[in-house]
Structure formats: structure tokens, C-alpha cells
Design a protein around this nucleic acid. Sequence first.
DNA 1: TTGTAAGCGTTATCAC
DNA 2: GTGATAACGCTTACAA
Lengths: 333, 333
Amino acid sequence: MSSIREVALAAGVSIATVSRALSTPEKVSKNTLERVNAAIDKMDYRPNMMARNFRAARSYSIVVLVPNIANTFFSTAIRGIQSSAHKAGYAVILGNTNDSLALEKEYVNFVRTRQSDGTIQLRPHSSGSLITPELNTPVVSVCGRENSPHPSVRIDNIAAAQTLVEHLINQGHQRIGVIAGNADDPHTMDRKRGYCQAIERAGISFDETLISYGDFTLCSGVIAANHFVSMAHRPTAIFSMNDEMAIGALQSFRSAGLNPPKDFSIAGFDNIEFSKYTEPPLTTIAQPAEELGKTAFHVLLQLIEEQELPSNDIVLPYELIVRESTQNALGEL
Amino acid sequence: MSSIREVALAAGVSIATVSRALSTPEKVSKNTLERVNAAIDKMDYRPNMMARNFRAARSYSIVVLVPNIANTFFSTAIRGIQSSAHKAGYAVILGNTNDSLALEKEYVNFVRTRQSDGTIQLRPHSSGSLITPELNTPVVSVCGRENSPHPSVRIDNIAAAQTLVEHLINQGHQRIGVIAGNADDPHTMDRKRGYCQAIERAGISFDETLISYGDFTLCSGVIAANHFVSMAHRPTAIFSMNDEMAIGALQSFRSAGLNPPKDFSIAGFDNIEFSKYTEPPLTTIAQPAEELGKTAFHVLLQLIEEQELPSNDIVLPYELIVRESTQNALGEL
DNA sequence: TTGTAAGCGTTATCAC
DNA sequence: GTGATAACGCTTACAA
């Protein structure tokens, strides 16, 4: 708890010299430097970062806005953010929002109260959001979409969904049900569009009754599956807009006696770790979650330091991961 | 970006009056208060928290140390911490340590550099830890064990493991394999002790070849399962020290043609959300993860405010959740 | 009720 | 190469 003053006293120099010894040692004579360092060691001195940051008018902290940290896709992305932030000397403040727009706003205001230098939003910008560009604060959106109001780092959700649905179509499926997220969610809209593009190209007509909206939770996957099970004319394949819902759905289908890939095909989205261990393992789209996080931090840092951004919309590659849940022998449909 | 000075100027009062208008409005005359508030609104003023906290010598932030934030038990606990911290006006700084003791130490030092007021450690204190009580900084350990060097909030791991294993024994099992965590992990030791107590009471002799050590990851569950499958004299039931490893093991067992509960029983620990959706659903021990987090924050706050702790070791209740993975008809073993 | 001014721990400017 | 000092934005005695 000693301050720079006491170190200066102990070393017999001024506080300015101690400060220089720490930040620009080359400007201090060898002899003095030694005396200062000895004093620092002796007193076990650590600079008060609050004072330093206050003086620098920089918090060296960023806020990560996340709807639900228990979601494995988000927590993996956060790991990426944290790892880059730590290297750059930034602390990561957690902003769990539970999808509350008011809470979101509150955390973004950390920038205005100088508790944070910028914000990373771990979900696409939705229309109701209170985080408008007018706030004029550094915000980067991970998993955004084209034409987001903030710089974003993401995959091409439309193309990814299309790729996945084309895979199902190539397996011979013509009637493909969708377990969607919230209807107004940007991801839901993008992935639905990819689905539509894929079936259209295959000459399959769109049928709204094949879309069941949920909220990206395990539980909502169960509900959606029950819906499909009770249909008179069931789909032969399911495209779930995330892995969680697919896993929930799997259980429902199983209790109805329907087992993939024999009785139907099912695919998810995100490639969370668990999707490799389901019964059967889940075909899905891999998002580079950790890489998305790392990139987002670097973009945010450029924004904070007011550098020119090379691009406002960084699109990272996705990957189709084919596993057994869609390995249907064609004739058995 | 306006400061208290400009507000004072605009309102025609001193900065002290503005400060009082914000913190102790009852000490300001009604008339002045109105003028000050008008000025605040007009200038859209927000107090600089960095300055305020610096002055108060309090960061109003805490660090949460977590080995891996992508682990659902940890992220749920963090949700609890965050929710309590937010209510108390504290920011939560994420300290993902990847099990690196050096990183742990670095984050705990945030207290010394005044970037944080205290630390919550989301794993039991292990012997190699650099976070010793000599650091003399507020630390609370979630999921600690008896006689931890720091105050801890936890469940009784020994009793919980014992309860779980007794459940298996009651189902008729005599040869019970264990998928353990790291051998030197305190949780591993406690849960192993509970296992030993249960079999001893049942008159079953201990067999070290029935213990397979992993590292609490899905992948290590696979490896452990392979070990058991290759044994000449296989166990009839498996106690996995967390759900992740149990889920990994399930897949391995299935590919070997072994399906619970028909061919063997298997139980996990933690009751992560996914354990309800495995095939078959997993018997497990529910830890009140969110509640553990909330309680930990309150204990930490008492530590920070130097209040007397009612207890150094808060033990919350666990719950045995019996699902189909251990619903074996006795005769079929 | 209000204002003056000291002080929190730094860094940076300016002399020397 | 080094030291004195102002400044960052705020809170809080103390004085008026």
C-alpha cells in the first residue's frame, strides 16, 4: 500500500524520478535506477493503476455484453476476447444482460462514466437495441450481420445456413423442418434466408408450417420437436438454428421413437463441444468462436485508439461439419 | 465528456455544490438543486467513475478467477456472482486462468494494483496455488473444501459423492468404476473419499484399478471409458466426477455396444443443463451453481468491507438427481 | 446553505 | 539527469 512518494523518500530521489524509472528507465542514470529499484523491491511497491488510469483518462477495461454467459458459444468467444485483451493490458468486464435492453444500455454507459473504454456485443444488433451509433462510443458486434450499425466480426450466416440445407437436400431430403430462434432475431432472419435460398434453388416450395420458432435454448428444442412429431405430414430432416435446440429436439424425437439418422436427419449450428458427443453425433456448422472473439477485440482496440479500420465488416470462414445425424442412406427415407 | 467544473459553471454554483447535489441532495437547497439538475441534464453530465473510485480508494470491481469459462458449471456460477455484484454496484472482471498458476497470481495482484477490491476463485484451493493467505487480500473460494485457507462457499463433496455411490450400490452394483478428475485436485480427493466411504460401508473392498484419472473434460471421459471397456473384469456401474466426462464416456461406451441402463449404470456430478438431454438422461448430483456464486459474492463483500464473517465455510445443500442412466432392473446385471 | 481548498497517486511540463 | 509543480475529476473538512 505504499505510494510513489514513499518509494521516492526511501530512494532519496523525487517522485518524478521514480515515475521515470518505471516508465522510461533509459532516461534515468544507471546509479539512480538501481537505488530506485532497490527501494521498490524493499517496499514491495506496486503502482496504483486506478491513479495511473485516471491520469491517462483511460480505464484499460472493456465490457463484453452477452445475453447468457452459460451458452457455450458465447463463453468460447469470450475466451478469445479475454486472451487478446489480456495481452494488450486490458481487463474484461462481464456484462451479462439476460437479453434486457435496459441492462445493455447500462453497461454501454460504462464508457461514458469512464469505467470502460469500449464494448463488445456478443450478438447481432437488433432493431430495439438502445445501443445506437448516436451514443458515439466504441462498439464492436460479434456475430453481427451485413449493414450493422457497428463494425462487426462474424460469419456469413446466410451462406452457412444455405450450405447446411443444401447438404440435407443432397442427402435426398425434400421436406425440411426448421427449428428457428426468436422470430425477430437477426441470426434467425439470416439463417432462414439461407434456408429459403437453398430450397428455392432445389425447386422446393416454401412451407411456413415447417418453421417452428424457439429461443435458442435446449428447452425450446424440445417444444419444437414435439410440434414436428405431432404433424400429420412430418419433415424428413430438421435444420436447427443452434446446437442446443437440436440437442433438446433429439431427446424429444427419441422418446417418440424416432432415431436419426435412420428415421430422419437433423443438423445444428455452432459446433459446440457437446455436439460431437450426442447420440448420434450432430452435423453442424462450425463457427470459429474463439477467433471471432480475438478479432473483435483487435477491431475494438483500433476503434478505441481511433485508428482507421481496414474494414467495417470482417467475415470469417465457417465450416460444415458432417457427422452421423445426417448420414442417411438415401433409400430409407 | 463534461466535468463537474463545467456543470458548476453552467449552474452558477461551486463544484462542491454539484458534488453534494449528486451524493447528498438533502443538503442542498431546493432552488439550487433544481438549477444544478437542469445544468446536469443540459450538459448530459456523467460523473467520472474513475476519478470517483480513485478518490474513494475503491475500484468497485472484483475479479473472478475461473479455470475455463466454457465449462457450464463455472459459467452458471459466474452468472450468480454477476447478478449479486451488479446489484451492489460492483463490476465483475473476468480472470480466465487456463489453470495457469502464474495467471492466477497476476489476477489476484489486481487487488494490489487497485484494479479490483477482491477475488472469487471458482475452484478449490490446491496445494501449488500462489494465492496464499499471506497475500492478505480478500479471497473467497467457491467449491472449496473443509479447512481451506480462504473463506469458502461450497457443497459437501464427500457426502455428495457418498450419496451418489450409495445410490448405485442400492441398485445392486458391487463393482463400481470411477472416472476421476486430476489426481491432485481437491474435488477429486473429496469425491474419491466419499466413494471409498460408501463402498466400505457396503463391505466392498477398494480396488485402485477401478479408478481412472482424467481432467474433467469431455475428451478425458472418452479415454476413461475406453480403459474400462478394455478391462477383463468390467465394472457394472460408473461414477464420473463431473457430467462432462460422463457425457464423453457415454459415447465411448455406446460405440463399444454398451448401452445404459441396460448394460451398465453411469452417474455424473454437477447437473449441468445438458445432462438432462443425454441418451439416456444422466443421474447426477445437482450443485446450486448460481446460488453458490451469489453467496460467494456476499461473503466477499463482507470481507472487503471488513465485516465479521458469520462463517468461514458455508456449505449449501446438494441434491441427488436420479435419471434413467442408473435405472437398472436388478436382475439384468 | 454554500464556497474554498486540500488531497487522492500518478504523469508530464518545465526549469535547472 | 533530476526536481518542483501543475493537472486529471472528484469528495470532504472547514470556513463563511
